[in-house]
């Protein structure tokens, strides 16, 4: 991961770029990854609401997938997913890293 080098000369008490922490990709923290099983998804969007890392991608009210650049793999989405007929739409699996 490449981040900006910070030294005293460019470190200021006011940050004027709102939300520039998107440069810090936290996806590398992950050891488990969420997998979306669309057939069990009712688009209740609870995963979107509960995700602490804003990593559930929703378009037009539908869950599209996960933003793996930032997902830390906590698994809240999988645990809280009500699914369809008792079948969860999200499960966690061990991530294979290269």
């Amino acid at each position: 991961m490449k981040t900006k080098i910070i030294d005293r000369s460019n470190c200021r008490p006011v940050i004027t770029q709102a939300g520039n922490s998107v440069a810090l990709k936290t996806g590398s923290w992950r050891s488990l990854e969420p997998v979306l099983l669309k057939e069990n998804c009712t688009n209740c969007l609870l995963c979107w609401l509960y995700c602490p890392d804003m990593s559930v991608i929703v378009r037009d009210g539908k869950v599209e997938g996960f933003d793996m650049d930032y997902c830390k793999g906590c698994g809240i989405c999988a645990l809280e997913c009500p699914g369809k007929k008792g079948q969860k739409a999200i499960r966690m699996r061990k991530e294979e890293k290269e």
Binding site: S21, L24, T26, P52, D53, D69, K72, G73
Partner: peptide, 15 residues
Amino acid sequence: LAQGHRMCQGCGASI
């Protein structure tokens, strides 16, 4: 609240 914050995975405060 933007992505890339350094709260622990599964942190309640962020939610």
